[in-house]
């Protein structure tokens, strides 16, 4: 692997929360949204992150773009530690790391036109650019993501969800980032439009040599776009492998359950595997189970699982899983 663009070591995100209804003098409890996450991302590579709600995948994204504080160790961006930087030091680097958000309409300021939204990103990083050039570059970028020049003057609420997401992509790409973090970029879209956006992201990545971190709860979408996939559960990484391998030969029982839960649009296949669902519910992230976080729902749980957090184990070439037992 070439020198990593981003290398994250033992990153954690902790929120202080007060449970609802508690008195104001009660001590805030620590919610560890992300614990001990490490990975490397090479240039032009796509890392997929899969997890259910509350798994901490969005918190990881926000820690990387710096809108929530991260704790522990470091996140090296081409050798410079992002987590050690102050807001002012960080600002020029924001150009390199951009984000695409889950809610296509919600991520656009309702009082600004599409053109203004895209132009703002540009003028933030290239001050003093002449107006006509800002305009023409914004128009070119909107066209690149599949919108028409006359869309420039329209407001977000006049666009469909898919079009709004295209504006969000244009805003992220106009500053020329090296890494784009996509936080559930298609989960709010209709199936037919989802595919358009995924294909667009793939094209842009190939043409511009971007690295992507693609976060989704939908393993089907992630498998399609990602080179490697990390599986998150309650703030921890349970398995990390090349995309094809992860889906073909999952080693962690949770990954297996996720694959089993992904619907297949084929009645014959679906009816044949109805019995394999996972029981139980996601435990509260405020009080995660001791030891292995998945043990409360795990089909192959053993007594030892409650005692200590299972270490990442090499289970294949470039394939690690946090389960000492091979489900076979």
């Amino acid at each position: 692997m070439s020198a990593p663009l981003l290398s994250v070591r033992e990153l954690g995100v902790t929120y202080r929360v007060r449970p609802g209804g508690s008195p104001p003098w009660a001590r805030a409890r620590a919610l560890q949204a992300v614990r001990n996450v490490s990975f490397d991302l090479a240039p032009a590579e796509t890392l997929g992150i899969v997890g259910e709600s509350g798994s901490g995948k969005s918190s990881l994204a926000r820690a990387l773009i710096g809108t929530v504080p991260a704790s522990r160790r470091q996140a090296l961006w081409q050798g410079a530690d992002l987590l050690a930087m102050g807001a002012e030091q960080r600002r020029p680097l924001r150009r390199d790391i951009q984000m695409i958000f889950q809610n296509p309409l919600g991520a656009l300021d309702p009082r600004m036109t599409a053109g203004e939204i895209v132009a703002e990103a540009l003028t933030t990083h290239e001050r003093g650019l002449p107006r006509h050039e800002v305009r023409s570059r914004a128009a070119a970028m909107l066209e690149r993501v599949g919108l028409l020049p006359e869309h420039m003057n329209r407001y977000p609420h006049e666009f469909s969800g898919g079009q709004c997401q295209r504006i969000g992509i244009a805003r992220a790409l106009i500053v020329g980032p090296r890494l784009v973090i996509c936080d559930e970029p298609v989960s709010a879209l209709d199936v037919s439009v989802q595919a358009q956006i995924v294909n667009l992201l793939q094209d842009l990545q190939r043409d511009l040599g971007l690295s992507l971190i693609f976060i989704s709860h939908d393993l089907g979408v992630v498998k399609h776009i990602a080179d490697r996939i990390m599986v998150f559960y309650l703030g921890r990484v349970l398995e990390h492998a090349a995309a094809g391998e992860l889906v073909r030969a999952p080693r962690h029982p949770y990954t297996r359950a996720l694959i089993a839960a992904a619907p297949v649009p084929d009645p014959a296949v679906e009816r044949g595997r109805q019995a394999t669902g996972l029981g139980g519910e996601l435990p509260s992230p405020l009080a995660p189970p001791s030891g292995c976080v998945f043990r409360t729902r795990c089909p192959i749980v053993r007594d030892a699982c409650a005692d200590e957090v299972p270490a990442m184990r090499e289970v294949g070439e470039d394939h690690v899983a946090a389960c000492p037992y091979d489900a076979g």
Partner: peptide, 8 residues
């Protein structure tokens, strides 16, 4: 959040 992420 998007504006913060952009660096505004």
């Amino acid at each position: 959040e998007a504006a913060v992420a952009i660096g505004v």
